[in-house]
Design a protein around this nucleic acid. Structure first.
Length: 223
DNA sequence: TGGTGATCATAC
DNA sequence: GTATGATCACCA
């Protein structure tokens, strides 16, 4: 889409983010001739993809940062009526087999969260999707303390997985990160390690950031 | 009513 | 199935 080429510099990206702030989703959708869904029940990724187009993110389902040349990952963050995160944030799929010898610095969580463009968007159910407005986006990296806490969570999870305990992991575990299912439905399977140490088919899972953590990020940015 | 567990669309 | 993008829906 030549109308929205990829930003070549961080400065360019930032100025485009400023241009988006305050705009409604129907404005953005109209510009690229996209219909606006009544609700997101069957279009859960619609807002994220709408923003990707407008910011010129390298689209597609590649395992690359959204802005590969800048090393920046784009995450929209839905806000409730109190302007706090409404949902957890998906980070990446949990490695259940090829994690042996994987270090924190080589993990998908480390890479995805090293540099993130957070873009808050109104998501209170009382506001029709078309009327929801884009907030003020900003580029973020974890503080030293946040990075350490994320690493601690990650290492706790990876140890359990190595021990074949993945099916004992619930979303209650983890300070900032949590592990929850990540699949089209409960019948999807991937290969993991069972309690006997042998391969076993199990439900794919993903790492998610708790809303308390993303709330902390927003607060440090706007307060 | 907030969080956990489940689910939806789409490209390849 | 795995990757991208996430929100839904129910129950404690």
């Amino acid at each position: 889409m030549s109308k929205y080429p990829k930003p070549e510099t961080e400065t360019e990206l930032k100025s485009r983010v400023i241009e988006l702030s305050g705009k409604s989703l129907s404005q953005l959708a109209d510009e690229i001739h996209w219909p606006v869904p009544e609700n997101l029940k069957h279009d859960k990724g619609w807002i994220g993809q709408l923003i990707e187009v407008h910011l010129g993110a390298s689209a597609g389902n590649l395992s690359e940062p959204d802005f590969q040349n800048l090393g920046i990952e784009l995450k929209t963050i839905p806000l409730n009526a109190n302007h706090k995160p409404k949902e957890t944030t998906f980070v990446c799929v949990v490695p259940l087999l090829s994690h042996i010898g994987l270090s924190w610095e080589d993990s998908c969580v480390f890479h995805k969260l090293s540099r993130v463009l957070w873009l808050p968007i109104e998501a209170a159910p009382s506001i029709p999707v078309a009327e929801r407005k884009v907030g003020q986006g900003f580029i973020w990296s974890p503080s030293e303390q946040e990075m350490q806490e994320l690493k601690d969570d990650w290492e706790e999870f990876m140890e359990l997985i190595s021990l074949g305990q993945v099916e004992t992991i619930t979303a209650h575990l983890g300070e900032h990160l949590q592990i929850r299912p990540k699949a089209a439905n409960a019948s999807v399977v991937t290969t993991g390690i069972g309690q006997d140490g042998l391969r076993k088919q199990t439900l794919p899972r993903g790492f998610y950031l708790r809303t308390s953590f993303t709330a902390q990020i927003l607060q440090s940015q706007f307060n």
